[in-house]
Design a protein around this nucleic acid. Structure first.
Length: 678
DNA sequence: ACTTTATGCGTTTTT
DNA sequence: CGCATAAAGT
């Protein structure tokens, strides 16, 4: 029997070993939230609870995996049997099993954001005459998603936008949304929101399934509860209704997903929804030195959103220094400083993996990325576009999908569009002429398609046809790796080289090969992999070999729940963090919470940066003040340093030479072409 | 009629 | 980079 009282502090112990009934754990940053949750699981298993009857909902796949690994350390392999995952993946799992009752096949496709937007775009093209005045597909997608996550109708959401931008055609938007709904139904697939909607629908409309699941899941634990949306809260409420063993763990100070429908009220009103629930507060912070916590507490002192009363109490000894605030010339100077400090820490014995650069939005990482790349500092980046969203990956996935499912229209169209001289119109035409089915493994289907192709495309077709032909053999022998190999060797490599610059093509080819290896090793085989690939994120499968020591570059959002001894936060400047948009729209509270999350990731050393000059693509530049978040921090809590000018070695050609400060009144833009490496 | 190429533009955060 | 639009090419 594990002695939990030795492993946990009194509050953690209370939470982890609590008896049955609802319980709310308010865990401030760095107070051992994961630790508590893990030991709760271990406690339950030791008590004799069947692990497969424990449901652990997390916010990211990464969190789920980490939790499971740690639980395994405490209580062995039994932990592997618990149900854990994101709301989306758990819903997908349930829907694959029980979705038939809602009219879905177990192998239903999950549409990722791109698929979703393409469908909506096609519908707009086909149904809206003057598309100029009509909202773009991105906006429509956003509205549809908001409606789903907030439990509102499209009318309500569209009307909301109408007040902002006059003359939105609400009925037409509703029509488009309904057509999209019908199209999805026709394809038998679900988008991300559908997973939640249908997961909940399963519980609400199918009494026998509801009762089965309520009976089955004896314990339901939810991590990051402050970021649940209405659907998710209802989902867990229903699931836990029978046994009432719902444990919600969260921190209202760290609610940073309201833009995705998260309702801070869920955590605030939890005690009302679950009368008699036990409340445990974790306030002892073991993560950060007091100098960092002082800053964190000050940041939240100005928060206006009402929250639970709690303070971070330092339980570590003082660190070496107060957090530093560097005022630098521009973003490059910050990057240079970060590089210098990384080296300094590294030479003092820190590993690269002990350090992280956390920023508000992806583009703010460019300077640091370039600097580290040039200086050969190893880093990993939780990049903006995941591997699974990149065109080359999607191309290969389309090929595989079509092999597995000859009726996959989207994949067919994507694939034939790779042929020269074939565009959207052609793809649709071929599909219809082929009888809305194309089995590449079948020689008569291949011949039929060859007949339809225009001369230019026909020239490139034979290698692809050959790949299809060979694929059958490989699939029979279960050599999935070979399928992708052939596809590349025979067809796709040439295509990549035509389409991209040399190095770029090379990189993409590498990605595709890596993908092949991933699929070959996939647990659920090719079909299982394809079905759930939309739920995988860059972090999950990217070549993140932990044995390689590298600095982490991440958005603050993606850094949630993690910690590093050394943290750098670049671009704490006006309009950058808090973001201009949030400022304009008066969503400052959440920005503040986001900054709080960023600050509380740091254990020993924290470095803040405020560049004073922002540069634009056209060579113009303009001065920017410090972030108001930094200005609010009393001076004595930070060590302020001013870095006067960018060193010459990289100042040349950028800023110094031809010093032409064109005053720019226009909105900011960024020169991606020259700064973006793949 | 449809596809390709050129050009201008905009970007928060993600399952 | 991707997207939308316009112009040029088949």
């Amino acid at each position: 029997m594990t002695d939990f009282s030795k492993l946990l502090n009194p509050e953690q112990f209370t939470a982890a070993t609590a008896g049955d009934g609802p319980i709310l754990v308010l865990a401030a940053a760095g107070t051992g939230k994961t630790r508590t949750l893990v030991h709760r699981v271990a406690f339950l298993i030791e008590k004799g609870v069947d692990p497969s009857r424990i449901l652990l909902l997390t916010f990211t796949n990464r969190a789920a995996r980490e939790m499971l690994e740690r639980a395994q350390k405490v209580c062995g392999d039994a932990a592997a049997a618990i149900w854990s995952g994101t709301f989306h993946s758990i819903c997908a799992r349930l829907l694959r099993r029980y979705g038939r009752t809602l009219g879905y096949e177990p192998g239903f496709q999950i549409l990722d954001e791109e698929d979703q937007k393409k469908l909506i775009g096609d519908i707009i093209k086909a149904n809206v005459k003057d598309a100029k005045d009509f909202p773009k597909k991105d906006l429509i997608a956003k509205m549809i998603s908001e409606a789903a996550n907030e439990g509102k109708t499209i009318e309500q959401i569209a009307s909301r936008y109408q007040t902002k931008t006059a003359g939105v055609d609400v009925p037409k938007i509703v029509e488009i949304a309904n057509l999209y709904l019908a199209r999805k139904q026709e394809l038998g697939s679900m988008d991300f929101d559908d997973l939640l909607l249908n997961g909940l629908k399963l519980l609400k409309t199918q009494p026998q399934i509801r009762e089965l699941l309520q009976e089955h899941f004896q314990y339901v634990l939810v991590d990051e509860y402050q970021d649940t949306n209405g659907l998710q809260a209802e989902f867990t409420d229903i699931l836990a209704a029978k046994w009432k063993n719902l444990m919600a763990v969260g921190d209202d100070f760290q609610c940073i997903y309201t833009w995705r429908g998260a309702q801070i009220e869920n955590i605030m009103h939890f005690p009302d929804r679950w009368p008699g629930c036990k409340i445990v507060k974790l306030e002892r912070n073991y993560r950060s030195v007091p100098q960092i916590l002082d800053v964190a507490n000050v940041v939240m002192a100005d928060e206006k959103t009402p929250g639970f009363d709690k303070q971070l109490r330092a339980y570590r000894g003082a660190g070496l220094d107060k957090p530093y605030h560097f005022i630098t010339y521009d973003g490059r100077a910050s990057a240079n400083e970060i590089f210098r400090l990384i080296n300094e820490h590294h030479s003092m014995g820190h590993r690269f993996s002990d350090m992280a650069v956390l920023y508000r939005s992806h583009f703010q990482s460019i300077d640091v990325q370039m600097m580290l790349a040039r200086m050969k500092v190893p880093f990993r980046i939780t990049s903006g576009v995941g591997v699974f969203e990149q065109i080359h990956t999607k191309d290969v996935l389309a090929y595989l999908r079509l092999l597995v499912n000859p009726r996959d229209e989207l994949s067919f169209q994507r694939l034939v569009c790779l042929l020269p001289g074939v565009g959207e119109k052609g793809a649709v035409k071929f599909w219809d002429k082929l009888g809305r089915v194309f089995d590449g493994k079948n020689s008569s289907d291949r011949a039929a398609l060859a007949q339809l192709l225009p001369a230019k495309a026909a020239a490139d077709w034979p290698p692809l046809a050959k790949a299809f032909e060979c694929a059958q053999d490989h699939i029979e022998h279960e050599e999935i790796g070979r399928v992708i190999e052939d596809f590349c060797d025979l067809f796709y490599e040439d295509h990549l080289r035509k389409e991209w610059e040399e190095q770029d093509a090379e990189d993409r080819l590498d990605d595709v090969k890596e993908l092949g290896a991933q699929i070959a090793a996939a647990e659920n085989g090719l079909e299982g992999f394809l079905a759930d690939v939309a739920l995988l994120t860059n972090l999950d499968v990217r070549k993140n070999d932990p044995s390689i020591d590298r600095v982490t570059l991440s958005t603050v959002h993606q850094a949630k729940g993690m910690e590093w001894p050394v943290v750098f936060i670049p671009w704490l400047s006006e309009g950058m963090f808090p973001s201009q948009k949030a400022q304009e729209e008066g969503r400052m509270d959440e920005e503040r919470r986001l900054f709080y999350v960023a600050v509380t990731r740091a254990k020993d050393s924290l470095y803040l940066f405020s560049p004073t000059i922002r540069k634009l693509a056209d060579g113009g530049m303009f001065p920017v003040g410090q972030s108001e978040f930094v200005k609010e921090i009393p001076e004595y809590l930070l060590v302020h340093r001013r870095v006067a000018m960018a060193p010459a070695e990289y100042g040349g050609g950028y800023g110094m030479r031809g010093y032409t400060p064109r005053q720019s009144t226009t909105k900011q833009s960024w020169d991606w072409k020259s700064t973006w490496r793949r």
